[in-house]
């Protein structure tokens, strides 16, 4: 079966519009209806497909592809489960790896975030367990270690991203009222690991998904922040977050359980009081893919927002689990897969 012949059953969305948000700044609002469906062709938005089988050797056994970078015609595959970073050529031939598990100064205990600095040609590994940041050359030589990185108000850094000036944005997802409400959010940390400023504190309480990846680099050089807590996305520019895209779901969301933390909500969930939950979003070119709904009917679905359709935004749901698993989930979930 040719790829272009593949027809994906989607559930269709509904509409779209613009709404004012945040200090008068506007951003598109995507309104979605989980109950409507449509059929679209993947060939409508995909030009071509390439397959690269990754070579398997004794040195290279991949457990899970957590993130993929491309630099100098090499594919850099991050496997956070194996705590290793593998290098392949564009044909998929294995070249080398960075695997420095341990407690020595140039080693890491956990691999909680991996960033690529293409300018300085370094891979940056954040070790939450040891609270240190390690800078490796592309050949695997540890060039710098920052101990006690980001230690501040007992915040746990759940994800982070490197900024062009060498600083970092750090993120701690919403925990709820029982765990220091008000101090989760996004803050900036210097290259030496010192707290710089709060960017945004969460001013709400509701159940929230555990977010593994919250940031992404945008084509214009700014940094995007997928804020599932607010069901909105932002970008970071000139030390401020500005609205990028908002979502409005025609159905229950986490906001409907305001004042309730994850532990409280667990009991409601058991009784079937579930909500539409945004898990992650990926921005690629003119398309925005979003994974939704792990709390609704115990399945996930996806939305596609195509910016080229002028003012019309279409969002589509993928209802077939087999497509979700093998095709679009991996595609959408470029940063992490949950097969």
């Amino acid at each position: 079966m040719k790829f272009r012949e593949l027809v994906v059953v989607f559930s269709l969305l509904a509409m779209l519009g613009c709404s004012g948000r945040h200090d008068g700044l506007e951003c598109p609002t995507v309104v979605v209806d989980p109950n409507s469906r449509d059929v679209i062709r993947m060939s409508d938005f995909v030009e071509r497909v390439e397959y690269i089988p990754l070579e398997k050797t004794d040195e290279c056994l991949i457990r899970e592809v957590s993130r993929v970078f491309e630099l100098d015609n090499e594919l850099i595959v991050v496997d956070k489960k194996d705590k290793s970073i593998f290098f392949f050529d564009r044909s998929g031939h294995y070249r080398r790896k960075i695997s420095k598990r341990g407690r020595a100064g140039n080693e890491y205990v956990s691999m909680d975030a991996v960033m690529l600095d293409a300018v300085r040609r370094q891979l940056i590994v954040f070790d939450l367990m040891s609270k240190k940041l390690l800078f490796y050359s592309l050949d695997g030589v540890c060039e710098k270690v920052v101990p006690r990185f980001g230690v501040f108000e007992d915040r746990y850094i759940r994800d982070m991203i490197n900024l062009p000036d060498g600083n970092f944005l750090c993120y701690s997802y919403l925990h709820g009222a029982n765990q220091n409400y008000g101090t989760d959010g996004v803050w900036e940390v210097s290259a030496d690991g010192e707290f710089v400023r709060w960017i945004q504190k969460f001013d709400l309480i509701h159940p929230a998904a555990t977010v593994d990846y919250a940031f992404f680099h945008r084509e214009d050089g700014t940094v995007g922040w997928m804020c599932v807590e607010y069901t909105e996305d932002y970008y970071y520019d000139e030390a401020k977050v500005r609205p990028l895209l908002a979502y409005e779901v025609d159905g229950p969301t986490a906001m409907d359980f305001s004042g309730m933390n994850n532990n409280d909500y667990a009991f409601r969930w058991a009784k079937g009081e579930m909500f539409n939950d945004r898990r992650y979003t990926q921005y690629r070119g003119d398309c925005v893919f979003t994974c939704w709904g792990s709390e609704v009917e115990n399945h996930r679905y996806y939305s596609l927002y195509d910016k080229r359709r002028d003012d019309a935004v279409s969002v589509n749901w993928i209802m077939l689990s087999e497509i979700r698993n093998c095709c679009l989930q991996g595609s959408i979930d470029f940063q992490k897969n949950r097969f």
């Binding site: 938005f45 030009e47 497909v49 390439e50 089988p53 594919l75 003119d286």
Partner: peptide
């Protein structure tokens, strides 16, 4: 296997 989908 890495599946690379090139968007239009």
């Amino acid at each position: 296997v890495l599946q690379l989908m090139y968007l239009k």
